[in-house]
């Protein structure tokens, strides 16, 4: 069955005709060319495909397109508007918070959603959020450091 789905992806509106069974990850990657959305476990376990739907982190691999009709979607490609990196992206670079990079889009979006809710999360909250996504390369120290750096940056910004 074909359906019409309206979504705003990274600020741009799309009226798409899709199969009811198509997932968000495949439409982003194969229709819209947004290959920053990586699919790894295909089971909502690893978080590599994490994207933001109305600001919430969602597993794109396990989300039917019809579920996101009339939603605002942010992918990693939508973060650095005009080529200026966000605080979170900048912090990931500064702390070397990735190696192979396959989990990075999802991690960055997850942290973006966390800091949008709570610019100054305590350690327990950070741990709870970040435990949702898997990085097989780093051992997580550098990612945690990046979250602290980005959150400190936001605090400084807010104070200024």
């Amino acid at each position: 069955m074909r359906l019409n789905v309206n979504v705003v992806v990274n600020g741009r509106s799309h009226a798409l005709e899709v199969g009811a069974h198509e997932t968000l990850s495949d439409v982003l990657r194969e229709r819209l060319g947004l290959t920053g959305c990586k699919v790894a476990c295909d089971q909502s376990v690893c978080g590599a495909c994490t994207i933001l739907v109305d600001g919430d982190p969602v597993s794109a691999c396990s989300t039917f397109m019809f579920k996101v009709d009339d939603s605002k979607i942010t992918t990693v490609e939508g973060l650095a508007a005009g080529g200026v990196l966000t605080r979170v992206q900048e912090a990931f670079l500064q702390d070397g918070a990735f190696q192979c990079g396959f989990c990075t889009s999802g991690m960055i979006l997850l942290v973006t959603a966390l800091l949008a809710r709570d610019p100054n999360p305590d350690d327990a909250t950070v741990q709870q959020w970040l435990s949702s996504n898997i990085c097989r390369c780093t051992g997580y120290n550098s990612i945690l450091a990046a979250v602290r750096r980005a959150s400190a940056g936001l605090r400084t910004e807010a104070a200024a």
Partner: peptide, 12 residues
Amino acid sequence: WATVANLRIRMV
């Protein structure tokens, strides 16, 4: 409930 499954699953 704050520790059930992972955050993405908790949200959906």
